[in-house]
């Protein structure tokens, strides 16, 4: 079970993985639309008041393409036999894990709290609001970290299987491509001002 959750890439055929990845990708877009969640970066999850399907789809697609491209470039450096399909599958399976965080915005809970915090000028008022929702914020932070770790583990295992990566050089290349993908995605979302 743990292997299915952390490294499905070594078990299932590419067809099964691609099909599952596309389903997860679609579900994550639908959930982002239902729970008004923005994914304006590879590692970003932001809650807003309203988002439409096309924006959620565009964000998910941009994230998927950027992450795939960055990992593919690193993959080709590690092993010239790396296939783009295996890297795409890695992105399609790993990126949707963030959708478990979207449920925190049921009835716009998190976005309303965010709006209230932004509107406050007094530190005392803001602190009171944080204390009132302390448990929710702590649970969100904890699950957020777990999801982030899960994403990195999935992406790394997918990269390892796709490239036959071994040793420190490939691990460093993976970390660099993840960071470059995050920076690049933020720049692109800022440039196109999608929302």
């Amino acid at each position: 079970m743990l292997k299915i959750l952390t490294n499905p890439f070594s078990i299932y055929s590419d067809k099964k993985l691609l099909f599952s990845g596309l389903i997860l990708f679609t579900i994550s877009i639908l959930l982002a639309t239902i729970f008004n969640t923005r994914r304006d970066g590879i590692l970003d999850v932001h809650f807003i008041n309203n988002i439409n399907f096309s924006v959620a789809f565009a964000e998910a697609l941009i994230n998927m393409i950027i992450l795939s491209l960055m990992l593919y470039i690193s993959g080709k450096i590690v092993n010239t036999k790396t296939r783009f399909l295996d890297i795409c599958i890695t992105s399609l399976i790993s990126l949707p894990v963030f959708m478990f965080l979207f449920f925190f915005n049921i009835k716009n809970t998190m976005s309303i709290m965010g709006n209230n915090l932004t509107g406050m000028t007094l530190d005392k008022e803001a602190m009171q609001l944080i204390f009132d929702n302390l448990i929710l914020i702590l649970v969100f932070a904890l699950i957020g970290i777990l999801i982030l770790v899960w994403f990195v583990v999935l992406a790394y295992n997918g990269f390892k299987v796709a490239t036959n990566a071994k040793g420190t050089k490939s691990t460093l290349l993976f970390i660099v491509s993840l960071l470059v993908a995050e920076i690049l995605s933020k720049i692109i979302f800022y440039q196109i001002s999608i929302y």
């Binding site: 890439f9 070594s10 299932y12 055929s13 993985l17 296939r83 295996d86 299987v161 036959n164």
Partner: peptide, 15 residues
């Protein structure tokens, strides 16, 4: 297909 593994896993083993 026969071994119940993914294509890149088999290719990596061969490499």
């Amino acid at each position: 297909k026969q071994m119940g593994n993914s294509y890149p896993t088999i290719r990596n083993k061969l490499d």
